[in-house]
Design a protein around this nucleic acid. Structure first.
Lengths: 343, 343
DNA sequence: TTGAAAGCGCTACCAA
DNA sequence: TTGGTAGCGCTTTCAA
């Protein structure tokens, strides 16, 4: 291993001078700087992370708690991770991955062992047992999601209420006269993932504004059978004519393709006989058959905002923690595709 | 921050005794152990990772280079990451994420800064510029994938040759009399990802064994248009009757759903009018319409084997590095679904 | 403008 | 069975 002492010896300076050249925290003569820098290059020196962390109390690592594990919805997760990793690298930080099934223990481990300088916590439930633990940690924690009680932790998330409005507004603007909201399987609804309620609220409020009737139907069970049953209930509940004026909003990301398949299987063509708007990542929406009009989850925007807030928290002195938004909601975006009429 | 000195003070022992209680590298009297352990519990002490790494030269971190970035095939990536993370945690190690777009610099950074004890490198190209860099690193590197020249680095991968055989054998066994292999877009073929050739070889060899004609068609361009064109060529090249005896093997994971859609769009039903076997993750195969018979990439098996080899490398003394398989190929598995006949 | 040295928290050696 | 202590490689203070 190459140390800063090796660099110092080669450059003919003291070890502390090498450190100052690297940190820029002291003025260095041009000649000394040149010699040190060429020694660094020659030896391909990079500072030992453990030693630096020990002395500076800064690891330059961000802990990321990802929702891996049984029954996690990991569709659309990668863009979050990718964006977070990229933002970290832009600031010469690295990402340490912790999986959700470690629960609160993962959080305390990160903090107590000084494995990272800050933590990003994803997949927040409305009443998330990790929040009180996170709030007492010695390192700052950012939530991607919106719990009932953030306990002072900054939150970043999509504005799901506006997302619901957006979907319904689009259907209203394209001539539909009734709305149906196809929701999540009962078990998911029970888990109280917070955005379920927020999206629903936005959608129903928008329908009311436009004076449109709005039915809300959940899936009685998980899987294609649940989707099928929910769809039948939707088609039964309205009047029986399929006249192209029913607008279906699919709230559950994982149900979007099954709904399209089930609609086609009943002999209706999405986009002509009835319209479909899904709440799902763009990458999924472009891949469905047919490509579905969707409201995006904006993983990149959400992640970027979370990381911006995180580095602000890390940079400024902790006493002056004002000017950090406690809750940042990202504006959703609707992209029309084949399952709703143009214009 | 709680240190081992705090624990020592509370337990009334020396700081080194605390260290020995934690490591178990010295016999400790029952009474002392009890006092130290209760002090550890009371203070919720966990050892500082930086200090431990500095002294012990072991970070207890595994670097994982993931194929994020432009034009990366990230479908089916999550099970790899999840399994690798779980295996690491089983040995009280953590995962540090590095993205592919850092290239070789990411590798040297991990090693030179002593950020990790070992590296897992995914998404290996046949002539991968990172291999020579990885081979000279001070930390062990495991490849998931099979380059032309591993330069002594252990490799773990699916046995793609056998995967090709498996797909064709299944089609032969279910009464098909001709095979077509629908491959990748030209740009991908050109990038020489190594498994392309291996799979193709296995498939054509198996077809020859069964005495079946086997056409090989690549996609002229990326996207649904490329798939469509390739499919047309397949249907044109054989005789023109669609008699349920044509077996189509789709090699490109991302083309599997588009192929099914295109087949249906031409008025044929997959599984009745012609059969389709895809090389893709199970999670994708169950989600297509209709669910497609697939040969799995076995991400969990591959990852587990890679991590087992990695920890062996880490545990044993480095001189005795025999008994490590230089190349481990995982046996693929075929699951019949709706797109091929039963039995 | 530069150097010497203390010390971050831990592991492991040497003594007792 | 236990304690004292050197020292891992770095950052930063104090001196020159």
């Amino acid at each position: 291993m190459v140390t800063s002492r090796d660099v110092a010896r080669l450059a003919g300076v003291s070890q502390s001078t090498v450190s100052y050249v690297m940190s820029g925290r002291r003025s260095i003569s041009a000649e000394t700087r040149r010699r040190v820098e060429s020694a660094i290059a020659e030896l391909a020196f990079q500072p030992n992370a453990g030693a630096r962390a020990l002395k500076s109390q800064r690891t330059r690592v961000i802990g990321l708690v990802v929702p891996f594990g049984p029954d996690a919805d990991t569709s659309g997760l990668l863009p979050f991770i990718e964006t977070i990793a990229n933002c970290a690298r832009e600031q010469d930080h690295d990402i340490l991955l912790v999986t959700r099934d470690e629960g609160s223990a993962g959080l305390t481990r990160l903090a107590a062992r000084s494995l990272c300088d800050a933590i990003v916590l994803m997949d927040i439930e409305t009443h998330d047992a990790r929040i009180p633990v996170a709030a007492r940690l010695a390192v700052p924690v950012i939530l991607i999601g919106l719990p009932a009680e953030p306990l002072g932790l900054p939150c970043v998330d999509l504005d799901f209420e506006q997302a619901g409005r957006l979907a319904v507004d689009h259907l209203a603007a394209t001539g539909h006269d009734r709305i149906a909201l196809l929701g999540h399987p009962r078990p998911t609804v029970a888990r109280e993932v917070n955005f379920v309620g927020r999206f629903r609220q936005g959608a129903t409020a928008a329908a009311a504004t436009h004076g449109l009737p709005c039915a809300v139907v959940d899936q009685p069970e998980r899987g294609p059978r649940g989707v099928s049953a929910a769809l039948d209930e939707v088609l039964r509940s309205g009047d029986h004519t399929i006249d192209g004026r029913l607008g279906l909003v699919v709230h559950d990301t994982e149900a979007v393709q099954p709904v399209l398949t089930a609609v086609a299987g009943r002999g209706h063509r999405p986009g002509r006989d009835l319209s479909v708007v899904g709440l799902c990542p763009d990458v999924l929406a472009t891949g469905t058959t047919p490509p579905v009009t969707n409201v995006s989850l904006e993983p990149r925007d959400v992640s970027r905002r979370a990381m911006r807030t995180l580095f602000r928290l890390l940079d400024r002195d902790p006493t002056a923690a004002e000017a950090i938004e406690p809750v940042e909601l990202i504006t959703p975006r609707l992209t029309r595709r084949r399952t709703t009429p143009p214009g």
